[in-house]
Amino acid sequence: MTISGIVRLEQVSRHFGATRAVDAVDLTITEGEFFAMLGPSGSGKTTCLRLIGGFEQPDSGHIVIDGQRAEGLPPYRRPVNTVFQDYALFPHMSVGQNVAYGLKVRGQGRAERDREALDALRLVRLDGLADRRPSQLSGGQRQRVALARALVLHPKVLLLDEPLGALDLKLREEMQVELKSLQRRLGLTFVFVTHDQGEALSMADRVAVFDRGKVAQLGTPEDVHDRPRTRFVAGFVGAANVLEPAVSAALGGPEALVSLRPEKIGLLAPDTRPRDDALEARIVDISYQGAFRRLQVELRTGMRLSVQVAASISASFSQGMVVWLNVPSAAFNLLEAD
Protein backbone atom coordinates (compact mmCIF):
# COMPACT_ATOMS: atom_id res chain seq x y z
CA MET A 1 0.00 0.00 0.00
CA THR A 2 1.48 3.32 -1.03
CA ILE A 3 1.12 6.31 1.19
CA SER A 4 0.10 8.58 -1.66
CA GLY A 5 -2.68 6.25 -2.84
CA ILE A 6 -3.22 4.47 -6.13
CA VAL A 7 -5.44 7.30 -7.42
CA ARG A 8 -5.12 10.87 -6.25
CA LEU A 9 -7.19 13.87 -7.30
CA GLU A 10 -5.80 17.28 -6.35
CA GLN A 11 -8.10 20.27 -6.69
CA VAL A 12 -9.66 18.73 -9.81
CA SER A 13 -12.35 20.76 -11.57
CA ARG A 14 -14.39 20.04 -14.67
CA HIS A 15 -16.89 22.58 -15.94
CA PHE A 16 -19.55 22.17 -18.61
CA GLY A 17 -20.47 25.69 -19.63
CA ALA A 18 -21.53 27.41 -16.43
CA THR A 19 -22.10 24.11 -14.59
CA ARG A 20 -19.34 23.04 -12.23
CA ALA A 21 -19.76 19.28 -12.65
CA VAL A 22 -16.67 18.62 -10.53
CA ASP A 23 -15.56 21.49 -8.34
CA ALA A 24 -12.07 21.49 -6.79
CA VAL A 25 -12.24 17.89 -5.61
CA ASP A 26 -9.46 16.37 -3.48
CA LEU A 27 -9.61 12.62 -3.22
CA THR A 28 -7.19 9.82 -2.41
CA ILE A 29 -8.07 6.23 -3.18
CA THR A 30 -5.99 3.62 -1.38
CA GLU A 31 -4.60 0.61 -3.18
CA GLY A 32 -6.73 -2.50 -2.81
CA GLU A 33 -9.84 -0.82 -1.44
CA PHE A 34 -13.41 -0.98 -2.62
CA PHE A 35 -14.24 2.67 -3.04
CA ALA A 36 -17.73 4.03 -3.69
CA MET A 37 -18.65 7.41 -5.15
CA LEU A 38 -22.19 8.00 -3.99
CA GLY A 39 -24.52 10.83 -4.90
CA PRO A 40 -27.72 11.81 -6.68
CA SER A 41 -27.68 12.36 -10.44
CA GLY A 42 -25.87 15.55 -11.34
CA SER A 43 -23.69 15.46 -8.22
CA GLY A 44 -20.50 14.96 -10.23
CA LYS A 45 -19.73 11.37 -9.29
CA THR A 46 -19.87 10.02 -12.84
CA THR A 47 -17.81 12.91 -14.23
CA CYS A 48 -15.27 12.17 -11.52
CA LEU A 49 -15.08 8.54 -12.62
CA ARG A 50 -14.74 9.60 -16.26
CA LEU A 51 -11.92 11.94 -15.28
CA ILE A 52 -10.06 9.00 -13.75
CA GLY A 53 -10.84 6.83 -16.80
CA GLY A 54 -9.62 9.51 -19.19
CA PHE A 55 -12.93 10.11 -21.00
CA GLU A 56 -12.94 13.63 -19.62
CA GLN A 57 -9.99 15.91 -19.02
CA PRO A 58 -9.92 18.26 -16.03
CA ASP A 59 -10.10 22.02 -16.61
CA SER A 60 -7.75 22.42 -13.68
CA GLY A 61 -6.07 20.33 -10.99
CA HIS A 62 -4.01 17.17 -11.10
CA ILE A 63 -4.83 13.50 -11.38
CA VAL A 64 -2.20 10.98 -10.32
CA ILE A 65 -2.69 7.29 -11.05
CA ASP A 66 -0.15 4.77 -9.76
CA GLY A 67 2.40 7.52 -9.18
CA GLN A 68 2.06 9.02 -12.67
CA ARG A 69 0.48 12.26 -13.82
CA ALA A 70 -2.63 11.22 -15.75
CA GLU A 71 -4.21 14.50 -16.81
CA GLY A 72 -3.92 14.85 -20.57
CA LEU A 73 -3.42 11.12 -21.09
CA PRO A 74 -5.99 9.32 -23.27
CA PRO A 75 -7.86 6.31 -21.81
CA TYR A 76 -5.56 3.81 -23.53
CA ARG A 77 -2.48 5.18 -21.77
CA ARG A 78 -3.86 4.74 -18.25
CA PRO A 79 -3.52 1.61 -16.09
CA VAL A 80 -7.26 1.59 -15.44
CA ASN A 81 -10.18 -0.15 -17.14
CA THR A 82 -13.86 0.62 -17.05
CA VAL A 83 -17.04 -1.42 -16.78
CA PHE A 84 -19.61 0.77 -18.51
CA GLN A 85 -23.13 1.31 -17.31
CA ASP A 86 -24.62 -0.14 -20.51
CA TYR A 87 -21.73 -2.68 -20.57
CA ALA A 88 -20.74 -1.47 -24.07
CA LEU A 89 -20.17 -5.00 -25.36
CA PHE A 90 -19.24 -5.06 -29.05
CA PRO A 91 -22.35 -6.46 -30.76
CA HIS A 92 -20.51 -7.82 -33.81
CA MET A 93 -18.11 -9.95 -31.76
CA SER A 94 -18.57 -13.14 -29.77
CA VAL A 95 -18.16 -13.10 -26.00
CA GLY A 96 -14.66 -14.57 -26.37
CA GLN A 97 -13.67 -11.94 -28.95
CA ASN A 98 -15.03 -9.20 -26.71
CA VAL A 99 -12.87 -10.34 -23.82
CA ALA A 100 -9.81 -10.86 -26.04
CA TYR A 101 -10.17 -7.46 -27.76
CA GLY A 102 -7.88 -5.56 -25.40
CA LEU A 103 -5.20 -8.23 -25.83
CA LYS A 104 -5.61 -8.18 -29.60
CA VAL A 105 -5.06 -4.43 -29.93
CA ARG A 106 -1.93 -4.89 -27.82
CA GLY A 107 -0.66 -7.25 -30.47
CA GLN A 108 -0.80 -10.47 -28.48
CA GLY A 109 -0.88 -13.73 -30.44
CA ARG A 110 -4.12 -15.58 -30.97
CA ALA A 111 -3.35 -18.68 -28.89
CA GLU A 112 -2.17 -16.64 -25.92
CA ARG A 113 -5.05 -14.21 -25.94
CA ASP A 114 -7.62 -17.00 -26.32
CA ARG A 115 -6.16 -18.70 -23.29
CA GLU A 116 -6.15 -15.51 -21.21
CA ALA A 117 -9.69 -14.63 -22.32
CA LEU A 118 -10.85 -18.06 -21.22
CA ASP A 119 -9.17 -17.58 -17.85
CA ALA A 120 -10.93 -14.26 -17.41
CA LEU A 121 -14.28 -15.81 -18.37
CA ARG A 122 -13.68 -18.58 -15.86
CA LEU A 123 -13.07 -15.93 -13.21
CA VAL A 124 -16.59 -14.60 -13.73
CA ARG A 125 -17.99 -18.13 -14.18
CA LEU A 126 -18.86 -17.71 -17.84
CA ASP A 127 -16.52 -20.26 -19.43
CA GLY A 128 -18.53 -22.22 -21.96
CA LEU A 129 -20.27 -19.15 -23.32
CA ALA A 130 -17.27 -17.83 -25.27
CA ASP A 131 -18.88 -18.47 -28.65
CA ARG A 132 -22.16 -16.73 -27.86
CA ARG A 133 -23.07 -13.26 -29.07
CA PRO A 134 -23.73 -10.57 -26.43
CA SER A 135 -27.34 -10.36 -27.69
CA GLN A 136 -27.84 -13.99 -26.61
CA LEU A 137 -26.92 -13.31 -22.99
CA SER A 138 -28.98 -12.18 -20.00
CA GLY A 139 -28.32 -8.85 -18.31
CA GLY A 140 -26.32 -10.45 -15.51
CA GLN A 141 -24.21 -12.43 -17.96
CA ARG A 142 -23.46 -9.32 -20.03
CA GLN A 143 -22.32 -7.57 -16.88
CA ARG A 144 -19.88 -10.41 -16.21
CA VAL A 145 -18.54 -10.30 -19.76
CA ALA A 146 -17.89 -6.58 -19.29
CA LEU A 147 -16.06 -7.41 -16.06
CA ALA A 148 -13.97 -10.14 -17.69
CA ARG A 149 -13.13 -7.85 -20.62
CA ALA A 150 -11.79 -5.20 -18.24
CA LEU A 151 -10.04 -7.60 -15.84
CA VAL A 152 -8.20 -9.54 -18.55
CA LEU A 153 -5.89 -6.53 -18.98
CA HIS A 154 -4.85 -6.62 -15.29
CA PRO A 155 -5.60 -2.95 -14.60
CA LYS A 156 -4.28 -1.29 -11.44
CA VAL A 157 -7.75 0.12 -10.84
CA LEU A 158 -11.13 -1.10 -12.05
CA LEU A 159 -13.73 1.61 -12.59
CA LEU A 160 -17.40 0.63 -12.50
CA ASP A 161 -20.12 3.06 -13.62
CA GLU A 162 -23.43 2.17 -11.94
CA PRO A 163 -22.50 -1.49 -12.39
CA LEU A 164 -25.74 -2.90 -11.03
CA GLY A 165 -28.14 -0.21 -12.20
CA ALA A 166 -29.61 -2.21 -15.07
CA LEU A 167 -30.23 -5.41 -13.11
CA ASP A 168 -33.36 -6.45 -11.26
CA LEU A 169 -33.38 -6.55 -7.45
CA LYS A 170 -32.55 -10.22 -6.86
CA LEU A 171 -29.76 -10.26 -9.43
CA ARG A 172 -28.45 -6.99 -8.02
CA GLU A 173 -28.08 -8.51 -4.56
CA GLU A 174 -26.30 -11.56 -5.99
CA MET A 175 -23.93 -9.41 -7.99
CA GLN A 176 -23.18 -7.25 -4.94
CA VAL A 177 -21.88 -10.29 -3.12
CA GLU A 178 -20.05 -11.55 -6.18
CA LEU A 179 -18.37 -8.22 -6.97
CA LYS A 180 -17.23 -7.91 -3.39
CA SER A 181 -15.76 -11.41 -3.26
CA LEU A 182 -14.11 -10.92 -6.66
CA GLN A 183 -12.51 -7.73 -5.44
CA ARG A 184 -11.20 -9.45 -2.29
CA ARG A 185 -9.87 -12.42 -4.22
CA LEU A 186 -8.02 -10.23 -6.72
CA GLY A 187 -6.90 -7.67 -4.14
CA LEU A 188 -7.64 -5.05 -6.79
CA THR A 189 -8.74 -1.45 -6.31
CA PHE A 190 -12.39 -1.10 -7.34
CA VAL A 191 -13.91 2.36 -7.75
CA PHE A 192 -17.62 2.33 -8.36
CA VAL A 193 -20.24 4.96 -8.90
CA THR A 194 -23.77 4.55 -7.58
CA HIS A 195 -26.79 6.58 -6.59
CA ASP A 196 -28.01 3.77 -4.33
CA GLN A 197 -26.84 4.42 -0.77
CA GLY A 198 -27.67 0.86 0.32
CA GLU A 199 -25.40 -0.48 -2.38
CA ALA A 200 -22.57 1.88 -1.44
CA LEU A 201 -22.82 1.13 2.28
CA SER A 202 -22.98 -2.63 1.89
CA MET A 203 -20.17 -3.01 -0.64
CA ALA A 204 -17.62 -0.29 -0.10
CA ASP A 205 -14.69 0.00 2.31
CA ARG A 206 -14.93 3.77 1.99
CA VAL A 207 -17.57 6.04 0.56
CA ALA A 208 -17.26 9.51 -0.93
CA VAL A 209 -20.62 11.28 -0.83
CA PHE A 210 -20.94 13.78 -3.70
CA ASP A 211 -23.07 16.89 -3.54
CA ARG A 212 -23.11 19.54 -6.27
CA GLY A 213 -19.67 18.75 -7.63
CA LYS A 214 -17.95 18.49 -4.27
CA VAL A 215 -17.15 15.66 -1.91
CA ALA A 216 -19.47 16.39 1.01
CA GLN A 217 -18.03 13.60 3.14
CA LEU A 218 -15.48 10.83 2.81
CA GLY A 219 -15.34 7.96 5.24
CA THR A 220 -16.26 4.40 6.09
CA PRO A 221 -19.89 3.36 5.62
CA GLU A 222 -20.34 3.69 9.42
CA ASP A 223 -18.93 7.22 9.34
CA VAL A 224 -21.23 8.54 6.66
CA HIS A 225 -24.24 6.66 7.93
CA ASP A 226 -23.93 7.24 11.70
CA ARG A 227 -21.93 10.45 11.76
CA PRO A 228 -22.92 12.55 8.75
CA ARG A 229 -21.17 15.92 8.61
CA THR A 230 -23.64 17.95 6.60
CA ARG A 231 -27.38 18.29 6.25
CA PHE A 232 -27.13 16.82 2.73
CA VAL A 233 -25.26 13.68 3.82
CA ALA A 234 -27.61 13.13 6.75
CA GLY A 235 -30.61 13.26 4.43
CA PHE A 236 -29.17 11.40 1.45
CA VAL A 237 -27.45 8.58 3.31
CA GLY A 238 -30.05 6.81 5.37
CA ALA A 239 -32.70 9.52 5.55
CA ALA A 240 -31.84 10.85 9.01
CA ASN A 241 -33.85 13.59 10.75
CA VAL A 242 -32.20 16.99 10.60
CA LEU A 243 -33.07 19.23 13.55
CA GLU A 244 -32.67 22.97 13.80
CA PRO A 245 -30.88 24.17 17.00
CA ALA A 246 -34.08 25.07 18.84
CA VAL A 247 -35.74 21.70 18.16
CA SER A 248 -32.57 19.89 19.16
CA ALA A 249 -32.42 21.77 22.44
CA ALA A 250 -36.08 21.06 23.14
CA LEU A 251 -35.40 17.33 22.71
CA GLY A 252 -32.53 17.47 25.18
CA GLY A 253 -29.74 17.85 22.64
CA PRO A 254 -27.19 20.59 22.03
CA GLU A 255 -28.43 23.91 20.73
CA ALA A 256 -26.99 23.35 17.26
CA LEU A 257 -27.85 21.85 13.89
CA VAL A 258 -27.91 18.09 14.48
CA SER A 259 -28.98 14.90 12.79
CA LEU A 260 -30.85 12.16 14.54
CA ARG A 261 -31.20 8.63 13.20
CA PRO A 262 -34.79 7.35 13.16
CA GLU A 263 -33.87 4.15 15.01
CA LYS A 264 -32.29 6.08 17.90
CA ILE A 265 -35.46 7.87 18.91
CA GLY A 266 -37.38 6.08 21.63
CA LEU A 267 -41.16 6.26 21.88
CA LEU A 268 -42.84 5.85 25.27
CA ALA A 269 -46.51 5.21 25.97
CA PRO A 270 -48.56 8.20 27.34
CA ASP A 271 -48.41 6.96 30.94
CA THR A 272 -44.61 6.66 31.12
CA ARG A 273 -43.28 10.20 30.89
CA PRO A 274 -39.45 9.88 31.06
CA ARG A 275 -38.55 13.39 32.21
CA ASP A 276 -40.38 16.47 33.23
CA ASP A 277 -39.25 18.35 30.15
CA ALA A 278 -39.91 15.49 27.74
CA LEU A 279 -41.65 16.41 24.50
CA GLU A 280 -44.86 14.87 23.40
CA ALA A 281 -45.70 13.99 19.82
CA ARG A 282 -48.60 12.58 17.89
CA ILE A 283 -48.24 9.59 15.56
CA VAL A 284 -49.47 10.67 12.12
CA ASP A 285 -48.38 7.73 9.98
CA ILE A 286 -47.18 4.15 10.39
CA SER A 287 -45.67 2.33 7.46
CA TYR A 288 -44.81 -1.35 7.28
CA GLN A 289 -41.14 -2.11 6.44
CA GLY A 290 -40.83 -5.81 7.19
CA ALA A 291 -38.70 -6.25 10.30
CA PHE A 292 -39.52 -2.76 11.52
CA ARG A 293 -42.07 0.01 11.22
CA ARG A 294 -41.35 3.55 10.13
CA LEU A 295 -43.48 6.10 12.00
CA GLN A 296 -44.04 9.76 11.30
CA VAL A 297 -44.58 11.74 14.48
CA GLU A 298 -45.57 15.37 14.73
CA LEU A 299 -44.36 17.71 17.50
CA ARG A 300 -46.53 20.45 18.96
CA THR A 301 -44.65 22.89 16.76
CA GLY A 302 -45.77 21.06 13.64
CA MET A 303 -42.28 19.69 13.01
CA ARG A 304 -42.28 16.08 11.84
CA LEU A 305 -39.76 13.39 12.72
CA SER A 306 -39.18 9.98 11.29
CA VAL A 307 -38.94 7.23 13.92
CA GLN A 308 -38.11 3.58 13.45
CA VAL A 309 -39.32 0.94 15.90
CA ALA A 310 -38.94 -2.85 15.91
CA ALA A 311 -41.93 -4.77 14.59
CA SER A 312 -42.19 -6.61 17.91
CA ILE A 313 -43.10 -3.46 19.89
CA SER A 314 -44.95 -1.63 17.13
CA ALA A 315 -48.27 -3.24 18.09
CA SER A 316 -48.52 -0.94 21.14
CA PHE A 317 -48.65 2.15 18.88
CA SER A 318 -51.44 3.30 16.65
CA GLN A 319 -52.12 6.22 14.39
CA GLY A 320 -53.31 9.36 16.15
CA MET A 321 -51.81 8.25 19.50
CA VAL A 322 -49.90 10.80 21.58
CA VAL A 323 -46.53 9.52 22.85
CA TRP A 324 -43.45 10.78 24.69
CA LEU A 325 -40.17 11.11 22.85
CA ASN A 326 -37.08 9.76 24.59
CA VAL A 327 -33.78 10.60 22.91
CA PRO A 328 -30.47 9.51 24.50
CA SER A 329 -27.98 12.37 24.43
CA ALA A 330 -25.45 10.24 22.51
CA ALA A 331 -27.90 10.00 19.61
CA PHE A 332 -27.44 13.64 18.60
CA ASN A 333 -24.92 14.11 15.83
CA LEU A 334 -23.55 17.59 15.25
CA LEU A 335 -23.73 18.88 11.70
CA GLU A 336 -21.72 21.67 10.12
CA ALA A 337 -23.85 24.80 10.02
CA ASP A 338 -24.92 25.50 6.44
Partner: peptide, 15 residues
Protein backbone atom coordinates in the same frame (compact mmCIF):
# COMPACT_ATOMS: atom_id res chain seq x y z
CA UNK B 1 -24.11 3.41 -32.48
CA UNK B 2 -23.71 3.64 -28.70
CA UNK B 3 -20.96 6.16 -27.90
CA UNK B 4 -19.78 3.93 -25.07
CA UNK B 5 -18.67 1.32 -27.63
CA UNK B 6 -16.05 3.75 -28.87
CA UNK B 7 -15.07 4.70 -25.32
CA UNK B 8 -14.85 1.01 -24.38
CA UNK B 9 -12.52 0.38 -27.31
CA UNK B 10 -10.26 3.27 -26.29
CA UNK B 11 -10.42 2.09 -22.68
CA UNK B 12 -9.24 -1.36 -23.74
CA UNK B 13 -6.16 0.15 -25.33
CA UNK B 14 -7.17 0.73 -28.95
CA UNK B 15 -5.91 3.80 -30.80
Amino acid sequence: LSPSLIEASMDLGAS
